[in-house]
Computed example of a mutant assay.
Amino acid sequence: MMKTCKTVLRTAQKMRDNGNWYPTFYELATDSKLHPHDVIEACKLLEKDKYIGYLYPSDHPEDKRIPNGISLTLKGYKPKEYAISQFRKYLKNNWISLVALIISICALIISISSAIFPGIVRVILLK
Rank of each mutant, 00 (worst) to 15 (best):
I103F: 13
K44S: 04
S97H: 14
I66V: 10
N68S: 14
S111K: 02
H60I: 12
D59I: 10
P23I: 06
P79C: 02
D49Y: 05
Y26P: 00
L108H: 01
K44E: 10
D17H: 06
L91I: 13
L34M: 13
Y54W: 14
C5D: 15
P57T: 12
T4F: 05
K80D: 09
A107W: 06
H37R: 13
E27D: 11
Y77Q: 14
I109A: 12
V99W: 02
C106V: 12
L9P: 04
K6T: 05
A42T: 03
Y77P: 00
Y54K: 05
I96V: 11
K127Q: 09
M15E: 02
E27Q: 14
R122A: 11
K80N: 09
I112K: 09
I120D: 07
K6A: 11
L98Q: 09
L9T: 02
A29Y: 02
L28C: 04
D49R: 06
F117L: 12
I110Q: 06
K75S: 11
S113T: 06
P36K: 08
K6E: 12
L45Q: 11
P57L: 14
N93M: 14
L101M: 11
I96S: 15
A100I: 07
N93Q: 15
S58E: 15
R10W: 00
K80V: 13
K14Y: 01
I66D: 07
S104Y: 06
G53M: 09
V99H: 01
F117D: 10
L46N: 07
C43D: 01
D31G: 01
Q13V: 01
L9K: 04
G69R: 06
L91N: 11
V123C: 00
E62Y: 05
D63N: 12
